[in-house]
Each structure stands twice: as structure tokens, then as C-alpha cells.
């Protein structure tokens, strides 16, 4: 078990947290519609694939590919490491 210190958040922490949330929201808002819808339903509303399919009126396979594409878009936007690992794999090949 890891011991986790639990200091109460400073105003600075709070600002950082809010900035982070704004960054996430902007990234989601910037996504093209079908991908954003799938991501919001899955990640923020916790719907299953079947339920997302029902809400959006598409087959489960389409739900899966939209989620996959949506997550790729978000990863590119939000994870700085994505680019460097791409380059690493390119130089390795």
C-alpha cells in the first residue's frame, strides 16, 4: 500500500485544477460531432456501447470506431507524450 499524503488544496492547486478542466472541456468541445457525442456518452455519462448505440441510432461497431477515433483525437490534443513516442517508433523502424 502506498502512503498518500493528503494536504488540503492550496488556492494555487485549485487554479491548476480549474485550468486543467478548462483544457479538457475545450478539447472535447473542439471535437467533430459524432466523436464528441460518443465520448461524452461513454466517459461522462457512463453509458454502455449498447446504450450509446440506442441513443445515437447507430450499430455497436460504429460506436466502437467513433470512440476509438474520439480518444485518438483527445490523446493527440491532451497527451504531450504521444508525439514523442510516435517519433521514437518512426526512428526505430
Amino acid at each position: 500500500m502506498q502512503q498518500e499524503p493528503d494536504p488540503s488544496p492550496t488556492p494555487e492547486d485549485e487554479v491548476i485544477r480549474k485550468t486543467e478542466i478548462n483544457r479538457l472541456r475545450r478539447a472535447i468541445e473542439a471535437m467533430p460531432e459524432p466523436f464528441r457525442e460518443a465520448i461524452v456518452l461513454r466517459e461522462l455519462e457512463d453509458l454502455s456501447y449498447a446504450e450509446i448505440g440506442e441513443v445515437t441510432g447507430v450499430p455497436i461497431g460504429t460506436v466502437m470506431s467513433r470512440l476509438s477515433r474520439g480518444r485518438s483525437i483527445l490523446a493527440q490534443e491532451l497527451l504531450p507524450s504521444a508525439k514523442s513516442s510516435d517519433e521514437a517508433s518512426r526512428s526505430a523502424s
Binding site: 472541456r25 466517459e43 461522462l44 497527451l79
Partner: peptide, 19 residues
């Protein structure tokens, strides 16, 4: 791992109730 970190980011409390 990449997908999981995206999920972790989105599971942030402040991100809920956005639909």
C-alpha cells in the same frame, strides 16, 4: 496506457455532468 490516461483525465470530478 494512452487510452487509460485519457479516461483518467476525463474521470476528473469537474468534468462530470457535462452532457
Amino acid at each position: 496506457e494512452r487510452l487509460q490516461s485519457i479516461r483518467n483525465l476525463l474521470s476528473n470530478e469537474g468534468m462530470r455532468h457535462q452532457a
